[in-house]
Write a protein that binds this DNA or RNA. Structure first.
Lengths: 216, 216
DNA sequence: GTCTATAACTCGATAGAC
DNA sequence: GTCTATCGAGTTATAGAC
């Protein structure tokens, strides 16, 4: 047990990436220190530069990794073969779970993207496709089949994302305004896992007992 | 027209705060440079330290100002004397307008709060009350009067905030996934001003033509 | 109050031994 | 590959003239 900060039997390069991820996620590019990353990895600062040439390149590796695990995960959840209402429940539950296990991830991604959108996104040109096309198509089809009200699929997708992500990135504010401790906050979020799908489905479902429906 | 970066006839102290606000909002505490703030204010760096003793104190002034304009503004909108559905429309419209005019503000507040919740929030103990008590009470009353479905007021308030704020802080992502330019993004947000109230009201309104309602 | 000059320090990066 | 030692740029903060 010479160094318990990282699992044993991993290469120095892996140790660096693991530590860098943790530090960058928590403190952002500007707030992170190469020294701190090295310390956490249990290696020397010079080794960081040996494997990754600069702080910026190390950051790029961490950010690319974040986006390339986040986007496919969202897609995977949204591409599940489920009826629309079930999928909304399934997505909410699993996405919130993912975010709660990586508390710093959403603020990190949002903040760094805001700092430098073009620089960062230019690296994801042809590569991974960001558009949730399967989910969008499913919504469109549900509208067409009169299973749900007339709804803009793009807006509905952002609604779903908003309701899941915002409460987590606003954690400190929510704890303050509702006077919650850590445990109370967790309860609040768990309650949301139920509330969000109900809230969305209530909004878009077609009300069977009324005459003609859909807006306009 | 000796210096057009700031309005004339303002004291140096005011010029500093105005410039500091702009730089800190855009770049955060770690990313901001005292030199850049001084340049933008059109004064010397030493003067920053003359008026505000340190970078941290200057930042605190900017952050306190941000919270102390944001929170009362939210309260003011939520305390308007309007029926619930009208208020939801009124709030959405004006709050999104406010955020669009201060694009960097929400990410700034969220990010810095996440970096240092206890340090920052400890300064707002007795002072301004964060809880939107009037709005919460109004929702509770509407539920009691069977004007809307049984709804947790705390969750509904966060839903409203989520739907307004998230799309703005996720601007770079939304532009990417929907392939929008600046103008297209503005259209998307303007569309939301209509969509959000409809979305929320559809969800909570009691459906008149069906037998008995409310969950449970 | 406002400026110039500079001290004191932090941090990313590199040289060079092993 | 990994380390120690150190350079050099950049940053906050201050001393001191005006």
């Amino acid at each position: 047990m010479k160094n318990s900060k990282n699992p044993p039997d991993v290469t120095a390069e892996q140790k660096i990436l693991i530590s860098a991820r943790e530090i960058f996620h928590k403190k952002g590019f500007e707030g992170a220190r190469m020294q701190e990353i090295a310390d956490k990895a249990g290696i020397n600062k010079a080794l960081l530069h040996y494997y990754y040439r600069s702080k910026e390149k190390l950051f790029d590796a961490v950010f690319a990794e974040a986006l390339k695990t986040l986007i496919p995960k969202v897609k995977e959840l949204l591409d599940a073969e489920l009826p629309l209402f079930d999928k909304i429940k399934y997505f909410t539950d699993n996405y919130i779970k993912l975010l709660m296990e990586n508390m710093y991830l959403p603020v990190f991604v949002i903040y760094e993207l805001f700092q430098n959108p073009e620089k960062i996104l230019s690296k994801f040109t042809e590569k991974s496709n960001f558009t949730p096309s399967v989910f969008i198509a499913q919504i469109r089809k549900s509208v067409k089949n009169k299973e749900i009200k007339k709804t803009d699929p793009r807006q509905l997708f952002i609604n779903l994302m908003s309701l899941c992500i915002y409460p987590i990135i606003a954690k400190p504010l929510i704890m303050k305004i509702y006077d919650l401790n850590e445990q109370g906050f967790n309860r609040f979020i768990n309650q949301r896992k139920k509330e969000i799908p109900e809230f969305i489905i209530n909004s878009i479902k077609i009300n069977k007992n009324s005459s003609s429906n859909g807006k306009k």
